[in-house]
Design a binder for these strands. Structure first.
Lengths: 145, 145
DNA sequence: AAAGTTGAAACTAAATATGTTACAACTTTA
DNA sequence: TAAAGTTGTAACATATTTAGTTTCAACTTT
């Protein structure tokens, strides 16, 4: 199991938008070239980021722009925007435990808190990282090339 | 995206093995009944738990037993045993970023540490919980019924 | 020897992820 | 205002993964 690559694609896209903004029109076609991901998929991701208020795009005129400051966008915002995890939670509980068995009818209750805590640990870590940090690191590597 | 239900099934199975051990033979068929999961799938999970040194099973004689003390089995051990996540990591990096683009050829390096930190946060939380705690909570709920 | 069980392979079915084709709606510019 | 380029979106295709199913040999107990 892996979290959809739309997440890393989205971070890649946003980094490009910041780095190339002003120098060129950052179209879905350009982003497709940089990410190696199909342009329609890119437009889908951009659509989700737009819905989340992270980018601005408009039909016709090409070119995406950030709708927020870099340090106001966390990896968690992106992760939520592209729907990395199910509404049911990160963990998938087997659906038909037997209510006639004392373990079967209670295991869900006994585990839920632990599973939520684990998911929260992951998400809190993502909340603590902003796109500003990722872009800064990227610029640092580019400048050092 | 969700982590395979084999994880919660495995915890359910191990809880049953602890709670019903001595009272009855905890066969894959019994566990299938309690979890609502196909007996062949149960045997597959038991096989992975056996490979990980968590349970003991033998062909012919039915009945699984724990191979370790409850407080020596963490949720992380189970998560690893049933192969919840890919060897490549929890996050799936898009595979063909463009090396001719300064962002494309560096984004992986710029993100990797952050992704590993997020995965580690999840896994550390799982390492901090033992099966003993889950079983204790389960018993508490059963006794309170 | 019979009955019940595990281990495992091979196949099926359903769900998900990603890519592709096609095209209408829109904007810019010649 | 016509042409060119772009976004948004639907419909379809393909590959992978998840879970279930069928089948049966190997094994243990009685």
């Amino acid at each position: 199991m892996q979290i959809t690559s739309k997440f890393t694609v989205a971070v890649h896209i946003l980094t490009c938008i910041d780095i190339f903004d002003g120098q060129m029109r950052v179209t879905s076609d350009f982003l497709s070239g940089s990410t190696g991901v199909n342009a329609v998929i890119v437009r889908g991701v951009l659509g989700q980021l737009r819905t989340a208020g992270i980018v601005e795009t408009r039909q016709g005129s090409g070119g995406a722009h950030l709708a927020k400051a870099l340090d106001e966008i966390t990896l968690y915002d992106i992760y939520k925007a592209v729907d990395c995890v199910d509404d049911e939670g990160l963990f998938h509980f087997h659906e038909n435990p037997n209510a006639d068995c004392p373990v079967g009818r209670n295991i869900h209750k006994a585990m839920d808190g632990r599973l939520e805590a684990a998911q929260a640990a992951l998400e809190n870590e993502l909340k603590s990282t902003t796109l500003a940090q990722v872009v800064a690191d990227t610029r640092k590597i580019i400048d050092g090339e």
